[in-house]
Design a protein around this nucleic acid. Sequence first.
DNA 1: TAGTGGTCTAGACCACACT
DNA 2: GTGTGGTCTAGACCACTAA
Lengths: 248, 248
Amino acid sequence: MLNKENNMPLYRQLEELIQSNIETGVWNHGQLIPSESELIKQFGVSRTTVRQALGALVSYGILKREQGRGTFVAESKFEHPLTEVTSFTRDIQRKGHKPGSITLFAEEVVPSARVATKLELKEGETVIRLERLRTVDGEPVGLHTSSLVTSLVPGLDIAELRNNDVSLYEILLSRLKVPMSEAIDTLEASVTDDCRSRLLGVPKGSPVLRVERVAYLTNGRPVEHGEMIYNAGCYKSVIRLSVRQRND
Amino acid sequence: MLNKENNMPLYRQLEELIQSNIETGVWNHGQLIPSESELIKQFGVSRTTVRQALGALVSYGILKREQGRGTFVAESKFEHPLTEVTSFTRDIQRKGHKPGSITLFAEEVVPSARVATKLELKEGETVIRLERLRTVDGEPVGLHTSSLVTSLVPGLDIAELRNNDVSLYEILLSRLKVPMSEAIDTLEASVTDDCRSRLLGVPKGSPVLRVERVAYLTNGRPVEHGEMIYNAGCYKSVIRLSVRQRND
DNA sequence: TAGTGGTCTAGACCACACT
DNA sequence: GTGTGGTCTAGACCACTAA
């Protein structure tokens, strides 16, 4: 089951194993999973390791713990813990629809002042700019513009980005030397201009959800600036928030 | 420093102590804090306990750990980890502005079918409905409608809610017997209808950010349904997302 | 009363950063 | 090499749930 020689820590392996048991339906939503002591026996690891794996899955909203009762697979209500950065492709697939993409632009360019500031770029630094029309089941729903700091994604092939079937995030995560750690999204309501109305196939001035994103590496460097514009009728953003008990 | 007789677990006490050291400026943003072994000596607890406290603060975005270097107070870039439910009042105050509220409606009512479904109510159950116009520095920016499950907030005084200076979340957190654990927000772009345009002082059909929220107790019961409508020009929603490293 | 998760201890070895 | 955080073990006692 678990492999101590593997590079991946035991708790991480256990985490994925439990998650795959849920995804493949071995354990169903709302059901009790084996107790900590059973998992200890079954996988031959210590309680700390088991609890580290369970704790991570609880924080993702995949499991729920109840003292004295046991650990349960969370109800599907909390199935999509979208406090993680997700790829549009995966997100739409998970909802049972077919994501699509039409690349409008993919070049190495000098960024606008706004993007350069957000990405903390020095004079003369360039970005790889990718503009795509995103579709769901063939219908246009949004416009994505990504600017990647060229120097942080060495060897990224622009021709590869033009391929309409690639997931930008999967390429990014596999290519980056320093891993990505987090992103700040700013969401606001807006209305379409002339050009975007035509691309999205809606009347000029239609409401859209505009999301601006800056993604950071674990060393704190910004690596991507993104702008996502979604047709209001087609796309909502769902976020799971935690309530921190305060004593102040 | 830490009190073993206290009801609050040691790691939780340590967590608050570290946080207060940051808030009072004992440790500054970007600075190194004492190492784990120093904290062990200083507070007379085990490494597990120290790491549990530090781990929580890291997950809140308050601390950053770097292997081989140490643990740092996060830069202010990530100071506001808005993957937590926040009160409008606190949120605006933190940005250095003056929040305000005008109560439009506060009564115990039979909820709409939509709200009853979201709150998983049985036939005949009532909610306490609170409608407020929210202001920042005196200007109207949003409309908040909250429906609280009456049976879960016993002793909640409706007259108290009419007071324009109360923070609903502070009242809720202090009154609930079962603590609140999380909320699901759904954000979308929309446009104002006639009535809302007048209240917000914008032309009919102006873009607004519409947020629908369902808040849950730790036992999984929904306790609040909220609808927040913000003037697009005045309010953006900022979210910090984590990137989960996947190996699939 | 038996079993569960919640907290805590005192160790151990490793990978990594700095000097 | 020394010190840091990352992972892991083998215990312990407690609070809570359910039979």
